[in-house]
Design a protein around this nucleic acid. Structure first.
Length: 331
DNA sequence: ATGTGAG
DNA sequence: ACTCACATA
């Protein structure tokens, strides 16, 4: 699943307000490391995004959820002058731009970036000279920086899928295998490859952790040279890289319990926005839906036992939501 | 245990 | 929003 920095919403009359609020939010998270301010700005942006009429003053906006004195006066400044002094400062702030550079590397977040800056490291070239300051994940992220920033053509994922299916089936024909994310939604390009696997011998009732299913799959894909790097490998999630043509690609493989397979397929197919909408619809109809289960909410407000789900359509049926093919979930 | 990061 | 994996402590 591709992750977006700004929740884009095409017809939003308060778009410009949301943009500067999100810019402030990112700054508070990455530079000030203040998660409360980050959340406050995001909340304000999201209420404005779903507000149907354009805000004409801070005063007017203050009635809305998540907007108080401080944000109201920022809205006023923006309405009067067409910009925000604070945003101007942020754009000129060197630290901010260095953090944005360093966090391009997978595994480097704002905390690590600040630590590197304190050590005098400010560019990707600096990083290449000081790999001793990086952990395994970050070293892989740096090594494949350009590859990982390059979109993957659909045809290449199709090729990878063929190899993966044949090798995994060869290992054990009972494996369920599906590539989710934007690929399943029919996109011509994807940011990474998100594979879901499942096996009848592994269910949610099983006592966890000591199963070797995922490890075995990863080993098979390593020995046929499809997997070329491992970033991390636990009992249910692999993160790494695979290669079939010129470039290496980010590959995630998740092992999901057999009885939760379709909820996981739905969830990891996305889009994020589609999931959000569908979960909201579920809630309206008295259900709670997550990555694992669909449950009916009882009169006491407590979710009941997971409902039996034998395909994606079942989930739509239960909550009375018109079925959408994966290609129709690109919202 | 806690923090960081990814998705 | 929430979970998983990993690196520290």
């Amino acid at each position: 699943m591709i992750k977006r920095k700004l929740p884009e919403n095409s017809n939003n009359v308060n778009n410009d307000f949301c943009d500067f609020l999100m810019e402030l939010a990112e700054y508070e998270k990455n530079v000030s490391r203040n998660i409360y301010k980050f959340n406050a700005y995001r909340k304000a942006a999201s209420t404005l995004a779903s507000h149907p009429v354009r805000i004409k003053s801070g005063q007017e906006a203050k009635k809305l959820n998540g907007i108080g004195d401080k944000i109201a006066s920022k809205l006023d400044e923006f309405i009067e002058t067409g910009q925000l002094e604070k945003v101007k400062k942020i754009r000129e702030d060197n630290t901010n731009s260095i953090i944005n550079t360093l966090t391009r590397v997978s595994g480097i977040g704002p905390a690590k970036a600040k630590e590197l800056i304190a050590d005098g490291i400010e560019t990707i070239e600096d990083l290449r000279k000081h790999t001793e300051k990086l952990n395994h994940h970050q070293i892989i992220g740096l090594k494949y920086l350009e590859d990982f920033e390059t979109k993957i053509p659909r045809e290449e994922i199709e090729q990878i899928e063929v190899v993966m299916r044949s090798k995994i089936s060869e290992l054990d024909s009972q494996f369920e295998i599906i590539i989710c994310g934007s690929y399943r939604r029919g996109k011509q390009e994807s940011g990474d490859i998100d594979v879901l696997i499942s096996h009848p011998s592994y269910t949610s009732h099983d006592t966890k952790s000591d199963n070797k299913l995922l490890e075995n799959v990863v080993n098979v894909l390593k020995s046929c040279q499809l997997i070329v790097e491992t970033i991390s490998l636990g009992s249910v999630k692999f993160m790494g890289a695979c290669r079939i043509a010129k470039r290496s690609r980010r590959l995630d493989i998740r092992l999901t319990p057999y009885d939760q397979y379709f909820c996981a397929v739905l969830y990891f197919t996305g889009s994020d926005l589609f999931n959000k909408e569908m979960r909201a619809h579920a809630l309206n109809n008295g259900f709670t839906l997550n990555e694992y289960t669909l449950r009916k909410i009882g009169s006491t407000g407590v979710p009941g036992e997971p409902l039996l789900v034998t395909c994606e359509e079942d989930i739509f049926d239960y909550i009375d939501y018109p079925y959408k093919k994966p290609e129709e979930r690109n919202i």
